[in-house]
Design a protein around this nucleic acid. Sequence first.
DNA 1: ATGAAAGCGCTAACAG
DNA 2: CTGTTAGCGCTTTCAT
Lengths: 347, 347
Amino acid sequence: MTTAAHRRSRMGIRDVAAAAGVSITTVSDALNGKGRLPDATRRHVREVADRLGYRPSAAARTLRTGKSGLIGLTVTTYGDEPFTFTEFAYFAEMARAATSAALARGYALVILPATSRHDVWSNVALDGTVVIDPSDHDPVVTELVRQGLPVVSDGRPAGTLPVTAWVDNDHEAAVLDLLDHLAAAGARRIGLLTGTTTDTYTRLSTQAYLHWCNRVGQDPVYEAYPAHDPCAGAVAADRLLARPDRPDAVYGLFDPNGTDLLAAARRYGLRVPDDLLLVCCSESTVYATTEPPITTLSLKPRRIGTAVVQLLIDAIEGIGHDHPDGITMPTQLITRASSRGRRHCDA
Amino acid sequence: MTTAAHRRSRMGIRDVAAAAGVSITTVSDALNGKGRLPDATRRHVREVADRLGYRPSAAARTLRTGKSGLIGLTVTTYGDEPFTFTEFAYFAEMARAATSAALARGYALVILPATSRHDVWSNVALDGTVVIDPSDHDPVVTELVRQGLPVVSDGRPAGTLPVTAWVDNDHEAAVLDLLDHLAAAGARRIGLLTGTTTDTYTRLSTQAYLHWCNRVGQDPVYEAYPAHDPCAGAVAADRLLARPDRPDAVYGLFDPNGTDLLAAARRYGLRVPDDLLLVCCSESTVYATTEPPITTLSLKPRRIGTAVVQLLIDAIEGIGHDHPDGITMPTQLITRASSRGRRHCDA
DNA sequence: ATGAAAGCGCTAACAG
DNA sequence: CTGTTAGCGCTTTCAT
């Protein structure tokens, strides 16, 4: 009666125990590498389990141990679709690094759009969650924290959002640095292509631009558009170059801005970099082969993804940290022809 | 003693039952919408559960019901990282659509690189799996099928891989159509930029090209390179245009080929489309704003992602199908300036 | 219309 | 060194 697995659905731990002539505890210990049994027993049990094609039930283990090995990856949504269009390359890189990092520590990632119906959220047993760019009073984060789950955000949490930790770039420093770079290349009036959204990235970057303008005594010249709409970006780029106070250098905050600005420049007969210096924030490699190649600011999403996951898993496993709660990662300016000053002439 | 939840970790179903003055069965039924209790009871229980902030345990439910609501999304890997570089845009779009579709039916996606350590695979309770471009005798697929899980692949399975169903484009038709398009635009000798890998997409596309050449009596002109290496693509593009039998039109099978070919054309002083017609297979929008804009073949990854998930969930839920086991989705040729013939002159 | 009780398959105390 | 036992928190018969 103990091994009633007559013709039951799947091979269970009891079947293995029976076949190996040991107790289920021994099977469990042998398979989980608990150090209390002699190698002979362990090998034997493992072999039997293998032969039987036994796979432990993840559900049962999760229920018993309270750990699922699952990490949520919450992505912002605009409209119905998960992920925003303009963040493709960034998101893909970040998610890829996060997936690797999680995997290396035995966890897997579950993609969960922030707007998910609530029942989907509670239908999956999560050990913790990575949140990308949470909004000010993000209900998802609040709920997760209430459940006692660790939450680490990619991007400083706005307001008083109670995340466990966060990872972000030093956006102010990056923008200031980049503007200095453009000025050094001969820019006299630098324009900005920015977003109408209020996320931290857009806000901090724009603020940094305004500070810089203020510091060097330049009038700000910028156009803002809804960043999730790719068409709006092309229009805004055009608008920026059509202004009477047309800038002689432009920084675009979003990935597609480079090609949009290049196209707009062509329409107005502006040569890059001779008449117009160009930089945009992007992770895309297309800018290495445009004509001319365009200087980009990389946010290094791989590092961010890795760091976020490490922080989260550390929190899950109760590993303490010296960092207070947020860490800042460097950005990288990849200088190409579009921002080389008039006196430079190398490719 | 029945409601021993003195100061226990989380609100359980028993706590709700106690607080509502009913049995746990009633709570379960009320929350899951079983139709056997009067509305009054149901409302009352729901309200109490809400007030207590009760969240059912996904792990327990999964153990009991055998369904986790989790679908694996297996991505091919080159090297250590999940996803291949050249497939970014395709993968991102496809994954996004798959995520939406799954969500709409109450499922979530788990990202699982095909090379995962085995223990990660068996640590997560999956109801089924989507596999992207499985290789010939993919061990992961074999194992999953052995476990009795439904597996649907994006891309025809090579060999005799026993997937439950598959979704794919009609690559042969797409390539033939595209080559006809180029010929109609005035191409006399069409070249191909292809891959050295043996996946179905590359194989079928290349075959179709060879067939077409054979049919129209053109000598094949192609260069193959390892598609996962972005640098190799640029080199191969250059090689193709450097040949003595230089083609006057080129089709590139991989996403970055368009910019690479454009750059190579510039190096050789070839004007596009006047001296060289260009088409590449890509989901990227950058080709709408390059100079000139480049014609692309879209594989419509959204549709594929959606279809794959629908098929999988249907299989999970035991919904029968008329389709035998594979379905073919159309592609779309997005015609732009790079492939407009000499006699056309609109933008 | 509701409740009691039996597990789902595993891990972790606790005995031997 | 190994086995017995008690649950993890639900859903689901079956009984009332």
